[in-house]
Design a protein around this nucleic acid. Structure first.
Lengths: 115, 115
DNA sequence: CAGTATCCGCGCTGATACTG
DNA sequence: CAGTATCAGCGCGGATACTG
């Protein structure tokens, strides 16, 4: 696979791996996806689950993930409003990635104080 | 696994998954690692392989990866100097992650123009 | 509840020049 | 070749206030 070229707005077809990495590299992306692995969640629920994130960032991330068809947004015209987020099939397909990262993280601690 | 808390300089033990993701999220990290999967490489060789990167960034990334024991740096007192970088076992252990990301990238294209 | 709007710092990143 | 040093910008991301 060609890992090269990455120019955002070029007409050259970008490398799919780099595109995937760019997505995954989002500061909150994988935490959000990981939370959604357990099922549908509401906005506030996510905001509480993804510790450290704030409203603006969560909105931004969710929009990006929705635009890339990783998650699905369902709004209900209730009072007060209800919005539910869930993973699409494409999103669920990220589970093996999550799992491998977690496996690696557990088997290969990064703490320098363990040297 | 606890995906929460991530404070850089806190005394609370951070979540290993978040730590791993923070590492992986580096803009050039996975490209470098991926290149090193094929074997030892010299500095200039890497700089050429990782398209778009510049000296400063490569140096920075390599130092970080070395400090985290992902890669190994070997310097030889030749003229001109020779430095070889290679993956440690910890680095090689990232291969399944790479593979899963690549698999996902190929099976789940992100291009909007494919909708 | 589920967002939007605005302000703002600082850190990542790139470009360029220089060194042993 | 394998880096180091310095400068500049701009965009990410946090905090806060407001809205339907």
């Amino acid at each position: 696979m060609d890992l090269q070229q990455n120019k955002k707005s070029e007409n050259t077809a970008p490398c799919p791996f780099r595109e995937a990495m760019d997505l995954i590299s989002g500061k909150w992306t994988m935490s959000i996806i990981n939370n959604l692995m357990t099922g549908k969640m509401r906005f506030k629920e996510l905001e509480r689950s993804v510790a450290g994130i704030n409203t603006r960032m969560l909105v931004k991330e969710l929009k990006e993930l929705e635009s890339k068809q990783i998650i699905c947004r369902e709004a209900f015209a209730t009072v007060p409003p209800t919005v539910e987020y869930s993973l699409t099939e494409k999103g669920k397909a990220l589970r093996p990635v999550l799992i491998e990262v977690q496996k690696w993280a557990l088997n290969n601690p990064l703490n320098q104080d363990q040297l």
